[in-house]
Design a protein around this nucleic acid. Structure first.
Lengths: 164, 164
DNA sequence: GAATTTACGTCAGCCTTGTTGACTTTCCAA
DNA sequence: TTGGAAAGTCAACAAGGCTGACGTAAATTC
């Protein structure tokens, strides 16, 4: 940070550097989703299903409203996906005990197996990238990504992170 | 890297760390696209238009096939987007002189202005994130993203990068 | 106890952006 | 010169976003 203030390393803020960062995000995100996409393809599922499964696994018993806030989609859109996941026996939905209006969402055994298949694929790539780049790079990676989030997303992210 | 081999810092490869990285990618990508999306909203354009405009700006005179390889979509899909951009006067398409089957793509004045508006918005966020994280973090960020790409995407990325 | 609000589900219909299939035009090589 | 490959276009379909309207049950407020 001292170098930055001193002006020595401001090259990392040139438009050219920023463009490279933008393209890196674009190409990397494609890689990031490629492996789970391949698995989902055979199941008539898409990324939307993956996201739902991921966050239900992450926060078992979460409500529909919670999921809506995290995923940032409309309830109609989420409902379509949730409907198929429930019908296929990957997710179960239980009426809330304290508040019976809420539905608490859980993965079934089958759903957990699906989640494992998807996240194993994604983690394998992530692990390879982390290993190739090393711990210092990983710390920087996380710092930049966190700074790139919208504040509300960041608090969602931190809530999940701290909850873990 | 020495610490990694020594085993001291292998904590960065735990499943929990990897999950955090995965969620960071998810939330950060949303932020990454949020600003341009807001601009596109008013214009009946979507992200596909943004991507096309970005890469035509980046490589003026590129052919449809080139763009296809970079964007990783079908030519029919790209064509629809290109059609509207051409009709709206943002892009012009010229028959190749050497090979008349090819179309070479360029941004018009109007297209350049659109590109500037979109990339200004995206760069502003990127710049803020870079500034907040500092140059060392940025280097790590780029390293991890590059390692996350598919090999073919990585060579596309490097081709663009070196060309600059 | 009635009225309002909240949480969720669903129907209908739209848009963007992916897909495949069939087609033309153009180039090149056998 | 002709037949195949490459580049691009048109048509039609699907996934998954979106909005709007409406219904129902449960909770909360007046």
């Amino acid at each position: 940070m001292a170098e930055v203030a001193g002006g020595e390393s401001l090259l990392f803020l040139t438009d050219e550097q920023l463009r490279k960062g933008i393209e890196a995000m674009f190409f990397a995100y494609r890689g990031f989703t490629a492996d789970p996409d391949r698995i989902l393809e055979g199941l008539d599922y898409g990324r939307a299903h993956h996201r739902a499964v991921h966050f239900i696994h992450r926060s078992p018993g979460t409500t529909v409203s919670n999921l809506l806030a995290i995923l940032g989609v409309t309830k109609q859109s989420l409902n379509r996906v949730l409907r198929t996941l429930i019908d296929d026996g990957h997710v179960k939905s239980e009426k809330g005990k304290a508040d019976a209006r809420e539905r608490h969402l859980f993965l079934t055994e089958k759903g957990e197996a699906l989640e494992r298949a998807l996240s194993d694929a994604q983690r394998a790539r992530m692990r390879a990238a982390y290993r190739a780049a090393g711990p210092a790079a990983v710390a920087g990676f996380r710092q930049v990504l966190e700074a790139m989030m919208d504040p509300e997303m960041r608090s969602q992210y931190n809530r999940l992170r701290d909850g873990g």
